[in-house]
Nucleic acid binder design. Sequence first.
DNA 1: CGGCTGCTTGAATAGAGTCAATAAACGTGG
DNA 2: CCACGTTTATTGACTCTATTCAAGCAGCCG
Lengths: 244, 244
Amino acid sequence: MPQSCFADRLGDIADLTPSERMALDRLEERERLLRRNMTLQRENDRATEMYVLRKGTMMSSVLLDDGSRQILRFHFAGDLLAVTNMIYGDATETITALSDCVVAPFDRSVLSALMLAQPRIAALILIYNQIERAALTDRLAAIGRTSAKARVAATLVEIRNRMKMLDRSITSSFVLGLTQEEIGDATGLTAVHVNRMLRQLEEEKLIVREAGRVRFLDEPKLMRAANYIDRYADLDLAWLPAAA
Amino acid sequence: MPQSCFADRLGDIADLTPSERMALDRLEERERLLRRNMTLQRENDRATEMYVLRKGTMMSSVLLDDGSRQILRFHFAGDLLAVTNMIYGDATETITALSDCVVAPFDRSVLSALMLAQPRIAALILIYNQIERAALTDRLAAIGRTSAKARVAATLVEIRNRMKMLDRSITSSFVLGLTQEEIGDATGLTAVHVNRMLRQLEEEKLIVREAGRVRFLDEPKLMRAANYIDRYADLDLAWLPAAA
DNA sequence: CGGCTGCTTGAATAGAGTCAATAAACGTGG
DNA sequence: CCACGTTTATTGACTCTATTCAAGCAGCCG
């Protein structure tokens, strides 16, 4: 079994002791493969497992009763999935693979035992919760108060930034891996309008689209248009006690 | 000093030991009064304190660069405020009093020490994080994919439900305590349009407005119009270890 | 090769925003 | 307790952004 992806993620913000690493390995003892478009869990289904995403890109979404879909969040390697299963018996979100993926399932009791035995890990999990919370409120503000163009731009920037965190070789050109309908469901727009906004971003020479890839032509201007804040940056964790 | 509001809140979902209660009391040793419209912290200001809201109603919001505002969340007694200050040096949100309030400030180092010393409290905090996360994603979906009328209705229902949790005597009639502009900033609408939606809800006999109060006339129908899910209900916490 | 699925574009429509003017409620100081 | 100024609510007319509907096209996979 390769080393724990989640431990790598936590390692980004704090040094882990060997015993902490060993404890984290227990979350990723099993593996499950998912092909693109397969669902890991469906909203309202009974669910008591949680997952570490080891490889690939996924998304969480909800369906509304008029049939429309809202994408809540995109997930990348090292992310914890389905954390709300810890507190609800039924899944609150549908989780779907956007590419071929590998996930490591574990029961919620394993996580609770881990948190009680390793309080420093509990603190690190809380930290990631807060990063996610900030990212989520940014998206809330974007959908509530910014233009369609800004929302589409923000989605492009967010995906690129998160990919870049996992693979430093990615710079201004990358494979988006989303259909226009998926961008629409993430931004609260229709696929048709997403198409028009992408064209507009292209006409304004902020991006080019080339065979499934997106290239940022004028990154500073795009960032301004997107109004995007990287919540994984500028953490201030001086208070976190060092590894024992 | 009266007992800890935050301990009361955690006590809703788990029995606390005397030693846990004592540890929680340390968060609320100091008090600060706020009048309506006073701000507790401003976005981007340096901030290393967090707060327990002991009394009153508050809100978190962000300002966008075109001057518009998005309200992220309403806060009620027992809520932890400014939790993201734990991980960022600068405040991510502006926090404002919607009524006269009492808050208890504490330094983030106090919370981190508490979590490391009392892992079960860390778990309970994580649980509330997840409740908040679910509520936040509900709002994301509402703003992204539901009609103006549904969003306004959802805001009314949410406020009523949270007030009811603190005061069981509140039923179908309550003091909303929000201007139409505030409802608009929470739902991503203009104050003018909020006004029209309220009138429509009134014409459809779902609510009546009477001197600053709102009364629900047809709660089942309103709930359906609002598409609202109470994330404080239906928790499944069997895995949580009992008090030691 | 045929059948999807996803992309593109135009035309018409609808939902929410903007602007503006008035009325009502509230708060403060005299 | 009243007068005045400010904030909040209300309503109409008009505009604009994004949706809907529709049609055609391109690429991909079996």
